[in-house]
Every structure is written in C-alpha cells, then in structure tokens.
Amino acid sequence: MKFSAPLVSGRLVKRYKRFLADVILDDCGSAITAHCANPGSMLGLKEVGARVWLSGSDNPKRKLQYSWEVVEADGALVGINTAHPNKLVEEALAAGRIEELSGFQSLRREVKYGRNSRVDILLEGEDGAKTYVEVKNVHLMREAGLAEFPDSVTARGAKHLAELADMVADGHRAVMVFLVQRPDCSSLSLAADLDPAYAAAFAAAREAGVEAFAIGCDVRLDGIDAVRRVRIDV
C-alpha cells in the first residue's frame, strides 16, 4: 500500500477525544489538529513530543486536512491508522503471503454475516466454500519483539470471535488475522491483563475451530506492506 502523496512530519502535542491529535508541523512550526483514525488506547504510541507523520488531503469538504498515519516508537516506525489493515491483508492474500488462505476464487469486503455484523473479508472457492476472515489491527509492544492484542477492552472484538465460531458451526471456515503494523515484532500474544474477556473469547473460538494467523508489516514513509508471518504464542 502506497501513500498517495509524501507524508508531512511533526511532533505530537496530544491525542484526545479518541479521534483527534494536535501536532506541531516540522516545516513551518504551525500547530494543527489531525484526524486520528484509531479507536484504541494507543498505549505506548501517544507520548508527548513523539515524531509523527501525517497524510494530507486537498478535499475542501474535509473538516481536518491531515490524518495521522505513522509514529516513531521504540526506534521503529509504527502504523496507527486502523483504516488500512483490511486493505493490507487483502494485498497480502493476493500476493500469497498467507499460504493457508491461498487458492480462493473471489474476495469480497464488508459482507453481512452473523448478528448484524459485516465480516472484513469473505473468501470463496470454486466449489462455493466460504472462508470468513476478520482482521484486527495490532501495534502494542510492551516487551521487545512481542506484539500484543488488544490494547484496551474490546467487547466488539469478543463478539466477532463468537460470530466466527458460529460460522464454523454452520460448516464454514473462519479465520482471525492479526495485522501487526510494526516491523519489530516476531511473535504475538494476547494482552489478557488488559482484556481478560477477549482472551477467554479467543480461547473459546479456537476450541470451536476458528483459525488464527498473524502477519507483520514493513512500515515506511512512502507506504506499508504486510510481508512476514508472525508467530502466535497463546
């Protein structure tokens, strides 16, 4: 995934109200408010003074011209925009980087399923077999090399696990893909101390036959690509 234009650098002043971030731009020293497309806690990624990069928009109808894309943390570039993971996983699937999910004939996004939900990706084979794929963005790292999910309580995430288990019970294949938007993690675990209910729901889903994979990203200032498998330690 390539950014459509060069990113603008700055320093983070604060992230607040979940979807807003105040930034001092490097090139002119101006203070601006950027959109933060990330509903999580962003634990460890919102330190005052952190180096950040923003994408800009020339759409006059947008309330905020800039969107926060990347932050420098722990010596690495980390992608924080949760609008990108579905596209990144779709690109990885098309490139065959998740071998267990290769060979599909069609891929559709945001298909209705479960209890008034939409699955992130629906794969269908020649024989009509369906694979339901949910994608979760990961960028929490509290121990060097170990990615963790979630970074805050996610009742919605637990609901999605239950719905994937329902799809398995109905005779379909169901998969959880954790998209790690940072290059410095080789394994992934569940942050059960932050959300024990999600950890329990994950264990129940795995017991019911839901598969899980994790894929890590190369994060650059010109784009982000999901390129490597990350081991899941649960």
Rank of each mutant, 00 (worst) to 15 (best):
L77H: 07
L93H: 08
A50Y: 00
D58A: 13
E72Q: 11
G75M: 11
S57G: 08
P85N: 12
S55N: 03
L101C: 07
S102W: 04
P60Y: 09
V71Y: 02
E91S: 12
L101A: 05
K87T: 14
G96V: 14
S67P: 06
A95I: 07
G44A: 03
S57F: 00
T82Y: 05
W53Y: 13
A73W: 02
V48Y: 04
E69W: 06
V71C: 07
A73I: 05
V48P: 08
V78S: 02
E90L: 07
K87S: 15
N59K: 10
G56R: 14
L45I: 00
V48D: 09
L43G: 09
L77R: 05
A94F: 12
W68Y: 02
K63L: 14
A92E: 09
E69K: 15
L45R: 00
V78Y: 00
D74W: 02
E72P: 06
S102V: 04
G44H: 01
R62D: 08
T82F: 04
A95N: 11
R97D: 11
V70N: 03
G75R: 13
D58P: 05
N81Y: 03
W68G: 03
P60Q: 11
G56W: 04
G56H: 11
G79I: 02
E72W: 01
G96R: 10
G44Q: 01
L101N: 06
W68C: 02
V71P: 06
E100P: 08
V78E: 01
E69L: 15
G49S: 06
V52Q: 08
D58C: 11
L64E: 13
P85G: 13
K87I: 14
L88Q: 02
S102L: 02
K46C: 09
V71L: 04
A50T: 05
V78C: 02
E99L: 07
L77C: 11
V52M: 04
W68P: 05
A95E: 15
L45C: 00
S67F: 02
N86I: 09
K61R: 15
L93G: 06
K46P: 05
A94R: 13
S55H: 00
E72R: 05
K87P: 06
V89F: 00
E90K: 10
A92I: 09
S67R: 10
E100L: 04
G79T: 03
N86M: 06
P60I: 12
S57C: 05
A83W: 03
P60H: 12
S67Y: 01
L93P: 08
